[in-house]
């Protein structure tokens, strides 16, 4: 009884308070602690949010070769997929905390020339890497991968172990830890602008108008057939550049139109595009994975090629084409799988 009375009283209080707050009754609910733990993964520059754990440079090296090197290069200096992580920092930069090459113009900017907080790298590797399997690394693996990166950047020795305890030591050696500023007018909406142009209306220039930069003739067609990027009626036309079809330069065509016109069977281009295949494979060029043409050639004589390819696509694969594993694509609908594997087995014709 006593409990019931207490519950009634609590219920009354809750009702009263909700009326006073004029809140949005019945909308939303409280988050549980477990839910917050599952999603609250950010790590701040003051290390709030950093989980306990550790990883060594040598553990990181093995992980790097298997999971990271295909995009970033064995030494983190590759630029074939992303801008380089490692390079263009010096021992003097580590001492001063200012990357001198930035002052000299910053013509070659790697991640380590710019980053001012080590937490940023831990946070991003943890939430977003590896690129094709984000959030698949354990905290210790994140520490290990970052330890290896720090070693490549000559910030820590080969026997270093990075942990939640040693992150602050590393922060004190980041090459560009002092190279940033938040003192500018573009952070707050009321911030002070750093240019102060005047709205002059007449005779505003002294001297001649000089063109300092124009597109060289050879670059006029760099972005495809401009005539086809404008309407064929109206106030203007696109410039005729006397060039081939727009598809001569696939990158300028609307996404996913550059492939496949001479094949038979269904057009697999949209399937390859929408299922993420083109992130790692191209028709006739090696990206992270082999080209479709190379796959077709390898299994040209195999009678069960479509079934074999389907099993590799559905279940994932590793070790056949190099160190980069292919993740499983178990969710592919059967008819899509059939179309793609038959297309590859048929020679991956364009």
């Amino acid at each position: 009884m006593k409990h019931i009375a207490l519950l009634c009283l609590l219920g009354l209080l809750a009702t009263t308070s909700s009326v006073v707050r004029a809140d949005y009754a019945g909308v939303g609910r409280s988050a549980t602690d477990a839910e917050i733990r599952a999603w609250d993964i950010d790590v701040r520059p003051d290390f709030v949010g950093l989980p306990a754990g550790q990883g060594s440079v040598s553990e990181g090296e093995a992980l790097w070769s298997a999971r990271c090197a295909s995009c970033h290069g064995d030494f983190g200096d590759a630029n074939h997929v992303f801008t380089p992580l490692i390079g263009n920092t010096t021992a003097d930069d580590i001492r001063t905390g200012r990357v001198a090459s930035l002052k000299a113009g910053g013509s070659y900017r790697t991640t380590f020339t710019k980053v001012s907080s080590i937490s940023t790298l831990w946070d991003y590797i943890n939430r977003a890497m590896p690129w094709d399997r984000p959030k698949s690394l354990s905290p210790n693996e994140v520490y290990a991968a970052l330890a290896y990166l720090l070693h490549l950047a000559d910030i820590v020795p080969a026997d270093f172990v990075l942990s939640d305890k040693t992150m602050a030591n590393v922060q004190a050696r980041l090459p560009n830890r002092n190279g940033m500023t938040q003192e500018h007018g573009l952070w707050k909406v009321g911030g002070k602008a750093d240019t102060r142009a005047k709205p002059c209306m007449q005779d505003c220039l002294h001297g001649d108008v000089v063109i300092t930069s124009a597109l060289p003739d050879h670059a006029r067609g760099s972005h495809g057939d401009l005539a086809k990027q404008n309407r064929s009626f109206g106030a203007v036309r696109g410039v005729e550049l006397a060039m081939g079809a727009e598809t001569a330069s696939p990158a300028t065509a609307p996404v996913a139109t550059g492939l496949g016109t001479k094949r038979t069977g269904p057009d697999v281009t949209p399937m390859l595009s929408s299922n993420g295949c083109l992130g790692c494979h191209a028709i006739d060029a090696k990206l992270l994975g082999p080209s479709f043409k190379d796959v077709a050639a390898k299994y040209a004589d195999r009678k069960d090629a479509t079934a074999y390819l389907a099993s590799k696509i559905r279940g994932g694969s590793s070790g056949v084409w190099g160190v980069v594993p292919m993740p499983p694509f178990a969710q592919l609908p059967d008819e899509t799988m059939k179309a793609i594997t038959e297309w590859i087995a048929g020679g991956a014709a364009q």
């Binding site: 930035l102 710019k114 001012s116 940023t120 560009n176 500023t181």
Partner: peptide, 21 residues
């Protein structure tokens, strides 16, 4: 929070070599 796109990218390099975050 010092996110990747606040510290490594989307930083404006000034002539004095400083990065505006």
């Amino acid at each position: 929070y010092g996110a990747k796109d606040e510290v490594a990218h989307y930083v404006d390099l000034m002539p004095d070599g400083r990065l505006r975050q």
